[in-house]
């Protein structure tokens, strides 16, 4: 092996091969980008409300307790399908009311129960957050999660 695979050959394989895989990866990424915009998330418009909701989601760092499409912290429930779980995915007004009611009841203060903080969120922001979660829920995630429990 040592005669066939010299150090300079190993180096060339490393740099050449990596370049090849980077090119393939970029091509697949471009296709995926288009697929996301035109297919998997196209079921609901990416409205100003949804975008505001995403900013609310980020400002309060929800991802460091919850998961969203399975990514995040594992301290609190999955939220990518929370609107389906609550049975309000197709009713924006009810979705907002349920979310608002839930958020305003936190923290529960129950001893021995994980606590969700209280967040200062305006009505407009809460509506945005609700729309953002509905928007995430309608994304085609290849059938994930396996159950409504998330």
């Amino acid at each position: 092996m040592s005669e066939i695979l010299t150090k300079s050959r190993a180096r060339n394989i490393f740099y050449g091969g990596s370049l090849f895989f980077i090119v393939v990866f970029i091509a697949m990424t471009i296709h995926s980008h288009r697929y996301v915009v035109n297919v998997s998330t196209a079921g609901m418009p990416l409205s100003e409300e949804v975008i505001l909701g995403k900013h609310v989601w980020e400002r309060h760092s929800c991802i460091n307790c919850h998961t969203l499409h399975g990514e995040g912290a594992y301290f609190a429930p999955e939220l990518g399908n929370v609107m389906t779980r609550w049975g309000v995915q197709d009713e924006p007004e009810v979705a907002y009311e349920v979310l608002d009611g839930w958020m305003n009841a936190q923290p529960s203060g129950i001893e021995g129960r994980r606590q969700m903080p209280h967040f200062e969120i305006t009505e407009e922001e809460m509506r945005g957050l609700s729309e953002f979660l509905r928007w995430a829920d309608q994304t085609d995630t290849q059938g994930w999660p396996p159950t409504d429990a998330g």
Binding site: S32, Y35, V36, S40, H69
Partner: peptide, 21 residues
Amino acid sequence: ATALFSGILGTGHHFYWIGLP
């Protein structure tokens, strides 16, 4: 070489359920 040959396209294992093809 084995790290990048597997790891670059291995990124795909994070792309299963987040809305990608």
